[in-house]
């Protein structure tokens, strides 16, 4: 499956472990959240980078404790109409997580921009769509009304722009590399 990040298909540098797979010596390793919790004592000493795979019924508060130690959080969309991961993503970003937030599952171009706006920064997508389709999809709307979204340079956040004098000094989205 192609991995889309910063407007390009890239090689996935992460090893994704199941519940039983042995832990490698080092490197970038993502681990299902239940295993991460259970084995945290030993994992905390892991020399490489850690990531975790959540389900969309996990609670962001339960993950909060681990977030400072994680460089990758993966959230699934079992079906594109199942929107729970949008809220979990937003909560995780509101908790201050700055690492890679990856969407996986039924990821389609017409929901792509919403995912980016709530803070997803990489996307496991199907072979079905060429890169141009994703690049196109990331530009469907150049403005949004809601505040506090992730956005690319040049995209307007309407309410903040209307009342510029009240806009925060550094907008949170500028600190984030944007997926599109």
């Amino acid at each position: 499956m192609p991995l889309l990040k910063n407007n390009a298909f890239i090689q996935d540098s992460w090893v994704h472990l199941g519940a039983e797979d042995p832990l490698p010596e080092g490197g970038n390793v993502s681990i299902p959240f239940s295993r991460l919790k259970n084995e945290w004592e030993s994992l905390a000493k892991f020399p490489g980078q850690l990531g975790t795979l959540l389900s969309n019924t996990d609670h962001a508060e339960d993950v909060a404790h681990f977030l400072p130690h994680l460089a990758l959080v993966i959230l699934p969309f079992p079906a594109f109409v199942d929107g729970r991961a949008y809220s979990i993503a937003r909560q995780i970003r509101l908790l201050g997580y700055r690492g890679e937030l990856r969407a996986t599952g039924n990821i389609l171009p017409d929901q792509f921009q919403y995912m980016a706006q709530v803070g997803f920064s990489s996307f496991e997508v199907s072979e079905r769509f060429p890169l141009e389709v994703w690049q196109q999809a990331s530009k469907q709307m150049s403005l949004a009304y809601q505040r506090g979204l992730y956005r690319r340079v040049g995209e307007a956040e309407v309410w903040s722009e209307r009342h510029e004098e009240t806009a925060p000094e550094t907008a949170p989205w500028e600190e984030q590399p944007h997926a599109g």
Partner: peptide, 13 residues
């Protein structure tokens, strides 16, 4: 109306 229009978090409720 404005706030809810294309709300990225709440379009797949």
């Amino acid at each position: 109306r404005q706030w809810s229009s294309l709300h990225p978090e709440f379009s797949y409720l």
